[in-house]
Write a protein that binds this DNA or RNA. Structure first.
Lengths: 396, 396
DNA sequence: TAAACTTTGTTCATTAAATAGACAAACAAA
DNA sequence: TTTGTTTGTCTATTTAATGAACAAAGTTTA
């Protein structure tokens, strides 16, 4: 059954417009909102007064006048509640607490190796409790928890598959809901990252963007027509298994020449291993160490990065031809090696000389670096809270 | 400025719901609409009476009763207007006239070779005039014209690039608007096809589908979240230039190993040529002739098709991993060779054994075959007419 | 300094459209 | 014939936006 039109819907739409106006353009007066949004002054007045009751906004003295009564300044009350975003990696967990504006208030990170499902869940619960405790007093408290996961998540918050974690059908949302009686949101980590850079990236906001999460594997988050595209069952963005070399290396997915066999952290580390690059204690080498070697001018390592960059570029070009996005953002751990990846990528992008697309494509590297994913999750939660809040206000 | 909520919007939404209900579920009564849509009986009554005034629907006697007053049957008046859809190919032009239900009333096709821009436009105008003349009398007459073009179309109906036609920056919409004072819509041919199969394909409707237009080149139309994705500048779906073999053949786009070098009509014809397959008059061979040869058991030709099928499948798998759609539909001219393509494609799709996706993917071959594109264009026009019509009704 | 004009924000009567409920008409089953 | 059901219309009510009036609080001009 489709949502029918009625007065409630009208009010929800308008209240949402007013709130968005204040969020994006504060400090702003009632009169200015009325003008910008095309809403009647009376309508704005009454909606603003409701938002004040909800504690979502606040008044803040008088503004400047240009020949008339001074306007009352309205501000978004970004401390009306706090949101928790967690990025679960393969061997780390990063959690942040943000206010409603997305500003980070508290941050925690832990590392681990090969932990069991139960152990990871326990650590996650601990982290959530710690972050909750760090939240200042506020009218709404913690408004929800969002978790980004390196795997396939369905629409009900079940982690169907996270190969690098060894997870299979984990009802993560349910588990957390049982522990914390708060709204919970589980998303694929690349989707979370895409949302994060869309909202908080320094670049101007664009309608269509691709966030490439180049970490252990390669994933992509797609913002299309201004909203996150999740695919039918959440499988979208399994782009690491796009074939770019039909007769290439065998992948465990059954095909040959998958992208992530050439352009991921794992691919680089394996190459490094086959070159005999190890730490003194014959432990597997890490990306951090490789970056250090490259900094010291190790040409073997540098060409390793350049090789990966070339393949990264090929995949990006494929995506650009498919989506014609305004922006491509490369994020996650490989950004560490940006210095050596970027020249190769830029060069390959020029290779497609057919004229279309390339001139308007902005390829950037995430400023948020490893924070894109948790910030995106926190933003999801915030967004949902603000939207739902608008419906519930009781009119007197 | 965002669209604000007000009574007009509410009415537009509800009227659109009622009309859609009648379009999709006719014959249907007012009472049934009220129930299904969750709208009040009075609301439905009044909106239905407006739609009757608009001539968009009609009453048609009494239905069966199950122990009460007999319901009045409502029907969609699919002859309230007619829509023109044109598919401009590289060496043919196909035009159809449909009623508002999408049923084909008149059809015209012409072939040509290497015509100038002006000559093509003239032929198009002729075709439009002929189709218009063939439309029966109706309250609204011709409600608009839609043209599908094998190239890149921007949001203003300019054909930016159509390499196979030799077109460059042709303001097609403007040209047609000047000639016919009717709503005009120009779209990429694959986008049009995607819309066509979404609406009129025999399969049940799905939210996310990919329409692969395998013709001279390879294009794709993407229906995501139930609506057509056009990309930032209309460049989307230039998927023929997705690289599937990084060290493969050189493409004129500047990259190597592009998909359409292996899986298009052009690719097949070129292979055929290099095998020495020509017609008696040493003219270039056509796809139709190749299909005939294959029918006669020519193993060389059959393996040609199978080779193309293999590469078609690789590209499709890439798209499936990227989009996780519910359905993939293969359309346009290569469907002629379905008999030899299908087994190879089906087999390759099994190859990805990682478990995700494959079980729920429905790969089908367009029933509309070469009609998908013009039918999609006509449907676009119809859709737009029906949506806009709802706003304009004057209330008494 | 007073008068004139501007801008802001609130209030109130009006209007549009959905809704609940009443009601008559039309029908089937008991 | 009676009873109960379904349909479609009509009316009073409710919700929320709108236009206009207005007071308050400014700035600019004479």
């Amino acid at each position: 059954m489709p949502e029918t039109g009625n007065q409630k819907l009208v009010k929800k739409i308008n209240k949402s417009i007013v709130l968005r106006m204040i969020r994006n353009h504060a400090p702003i007066s009632r009169a200015a909102i009325s003008q910008k949004a095309g809403l009647n002054r009376g309508t704005v007045s009454s909606l603003v007064s409701e938002l004040l009751d909800d504690k979502l906004i606040s008044e803040s003295g008088m503004g400047e006048s240009r020949g008339g009564r001074k306007p009352v300044i309205l501000l978004f009350n970004h401390r009306a509640g706090y949101s928790i975003g967690i990025d679960l990696g393969v061997n780390y967990m990063l959690g942040i607490l943000t206010d409603l504006k997305g500003q980070i208030v508290e941050k925690q990170k832990i590392s681990f190796h090969q932990l069991s499902l139960e152990a990871i869940i326990d650590k996650m619960k601990d982290m959530i409790r710690n972050l909750s405790a760090a939240a200042p007093d506020s009218p709404n408290g913690i408004v929800g928890i969002g978790v980004g996961v390196p795997g396939i998540v369905d629409h009900d918050g079940n982690v169907l598959l996270a190969p690098n974690l060894g997870w299979n059908n984990v009802p993560l949302k349910e588990i957390l809901e049982r522990e914390f009686s708060l709204p919970i949101l589980i998303e694929n980590e690349a989707n979370a990252g895409a949302y994060g850079v869309k909202l908080y990236g320094t670049e101007e906001i664009r309608e269509n963007l691709i966030y490439i999460s180049a970490g252990i594997g390669v994933g992509a988050g797609l913002i299309l027509n201004d909203s996150l595209y999740r695919g039918t069952k959440g499988y979208s963005g399994e782009i690491g298994h796009m074939v770019i070399d039909v007769d290439g290396k065998q992948c465990r997915c059954g095909r040959k020449g998958c992208w992530e066999l050439y352009a991921s952290e794992q691919a680089i580390l394996e190459e490094a291993r086959s070159l005999g690059l190890e730490t003194s204690k014959s432990q597997p080498i890490t990306l951090e160490q490789l970056v250090e070697h490259a900094e010291n001018g190790d040409s073997k390592v540098i060409s390793l990065f350049e090789h990966a960059g070339k393949y990264l570029a090929e995949g990006i070009l494929n995506l650009v031809n498919t989506f014609n996005p305004e922006q491509v953002i490369i994020g996650n751990r490989l950004v560490m090696a940006r210095k050596w990846l970027e020249p190769v990528i830029t060069e390959r992008l020029q290779a497609q000389t057919m004229g279309f697309n390339q001139e308007d494509i902005h390829v950037t590297y995430s400023q948020l670096s490893t924070h894109a994913s948790p910030m995106g999750m926190a933003a999801f939660i915030t967004q949902r809270f603000l939207e739902n809040g608008l419906e519930q206000t009781v009119t007197n």
